[in-house]
Design a protein around this nucleic acid. Structure first.
Lengths: 345, 345
DNA sequence: TTGTATGCGTTATCAG
DNA sequence: CTGATAACGCATACAA
């Protein structure tokens, strides 16, 4: 296990000072004679020189790294967001550190600390925690933060989020347009702003048409896994069907839960969409792989990631830092899980 | 934007030397009087001290970080592996840097360099590239490497992989056991060892029973996305059905592709499993969310991650470094997409 | 138990 | 154009 070679080693071999070596190898553009420049580069290559970023970053106090904290990459929604972030980051020669908070506020906070300790100056976060005290402190020390998906109260935090309320509204309206009057809503625990907004949109659309909301909410605090959401969809559907006046359409707060809804219906011999319409929320790819393909409200997840990353890089570079919010519009993705009902006159 | 505070600042405030501060705050266990210890801790807390890991790591030459290079976290298989890695890493107070090579050998190499420059001493990689020259150089400088999923030729690289061949064999045998004689195999480009092994297992099981293999291989070099695999499954199924003697069962090289197979069959009015049996490969959660639930060969993906991480940490800590391979056994996951065919005597 | 001094690998400042 | 030297924040050998 030989010692890694440093600029000093190269300096000796090239018979110059380490300062000159640094100037060449760091790509600083500082004037160095062509001859020595070439010599240094040659020696560096021959000796398999690997720059030590720790030294460099310690000195320059800039890590070219952004941190990302999300609930879980096993959620296809977040993995798509992440790909969007990475795409932009890579274009700008930035690296990304990803942390899965796994819906655990304590873990989120721990990662937050880690990121700060690693001298990461930019953060994109879909926060689970309610306590943003630490976050504020970090921002006071100069960290730039973009909140995605989940709104974070606080000064100076730019946000990029979906118009969840509108999405919920659109879903309910679409079902109404198809003739449905009794529209059920199944949702996981309404403990997060995003989820409350979807519900709010749904409720608004219902009231607006003089319809009674018919919602069932999971009581379980969710340990997120797609399998969990799926099973929750099954359970909630069962509860929904117990009503004296069961709905003719079900709106699920996310696609995976909609899969659960469809599974439970199928198990009971209820056909989708003939006997019951189903609409989801998210627009993950798997929605078109099941049968029937799921009609859903699509969120531009990849774009959320790329936009957030662009905003962050702007803040990191820019002298002036306008704080602003971006609201991404949802889109109805009509596939085959919703049917027209009643007479069409 | 105030300057971040350092151990020297704390030293001044506490009227001690920075060495003493370091001893307390780094948790070194070095003897310090209870009084000053408390005082230092109090001041550190009051002043929101955030240790600078760059300084620490530069000094100690150990980053407590492991790198992970995988094709793409949007693949649920890899995201599961990753969660397994992170779980173990976290238990041991290690951090993880994830890089998505996106099936791009050049990008993989770039990330490899980045990881080395960040002084990461341990790497878990599912390699896409064929050129492991750089990898070998890095290992020469002391980097520990565990290859997962994709076999990497090279000295000193421990591997943890699935017994792909056996998995392919099991799938084909299961279908045979259910009475199928004409069994089709749909696969993406056989350009990777893992894929070739599955095919090999399938072929072996067929020949062994005196059956003719009936395989269709995608010609496209895959830009991996689940949607892509899905569509490929559809296309390949169409090709398979053109045969004069179409199969009675189809084995797909991964679950998402199996979804495509089922979709195409359903589109043509061919019922699964009554008219055609389908078996997948991977065991992702979505397999039980579709209809009918997909029978498949399950790979212990999470375990692959946790085992690989344990092995890596052992190598990182241990003085002695036995290099060894772990072969994970696949398991038949019987659900409802395979039917008995012919008479059962 | 504490302090002093040094160095990890790099870049920045300043002088030549 | 080049070199000597200091500094980034921290940990540690050595001295007290």
């Amino acid at each position: 296990m030989k010692k890694p070679i440093t600029i000093h080693d190269i300096a000796k071999l090239a018979e110059v000072s380490s300062a000159t070596v640094s100037r060449v190898l760091s790509g600083s553009g500082y004037p160095v004679s062509a001859a020595t420049r070439e010599k240094i580069q040659r020696i560096a290559k021959e000796s398999n020189y690997i720059p030590n970023m720790l030294g460099k970053q310690l000195k320059t106090n800039s890590s070219m790294t952004i941190g990302v904290i999300i609930p879980s990459i096993s959620n296809p929604f977040y993995s798509s967001v992440l790909l969007g972030i990475e795409g932009i980051a890579r274009q700008n020669r930035f690296h990304v550190i990803v942390c899965n908070s796994l819906h655990d506020a304590a873990l989120e906070e721990e990662y937050l600390k880690t990121i700060a300790e690693k001298q990461v100056k930019g953060l994109i976060i879909s926060s689970i925690g309610s306590d943003q005290e630490l976050l504020q402190k970090l921002m006071d020390t100069g960290m730039k933060v973009i909140a995605i998906d989940q709104k974070v109260e606080g000064e100076g935090i730019s946000q990029v989020e979906f118009d969840y309320r509108k999405g919920g509204y659109m879903a309910a309206k679409h079902l109404q347009l198809k003739g449905h009057r009794r529209i059920g809503y199944v949702t996981s625990l309404l403990d997060r702003p995003s989820r409350r907004s979807i519900y709010q949109g749904y409720e608004e659309a219902m009231r607006e048409s003089g319809l009674e909301p018919l919602a069932v909410e999971s009581t379980e605090d969710d340990v997120y896994s797609s399998l969990n959401e799926f099973n929750m969809g099954k359970k909630l559907t069962a509860r929904l069907l117990e009503a004296e006046q069961p709905p003719t359409a079900i709106f699920a707060c996310n696609d995976v839960m909609a899969f659960g809804v469809m599974h439970e219906l199928s198990r009971r011999g209820i056909q989708v969409p003939q006997d019951m319409s189903v609409i989801g929320f998210d627009g993950i790819d798997y929605g078109q792989m099941i049968h029937p393909p799921l009609t859903t409200i699509q969120q531009p997840d990849y774009e959320m990631g790329s936009i957030a990353c662009k905003m962050l890089l702007d803040q990191l570079n820019g002298e002036t830092n306008p704080v602003y919010d971006v609201l991404l519009e949802p889109q109805l993705l009509e596939r085959s899980s919703v049917a027209q009902v009643g007479s069409v006159e």
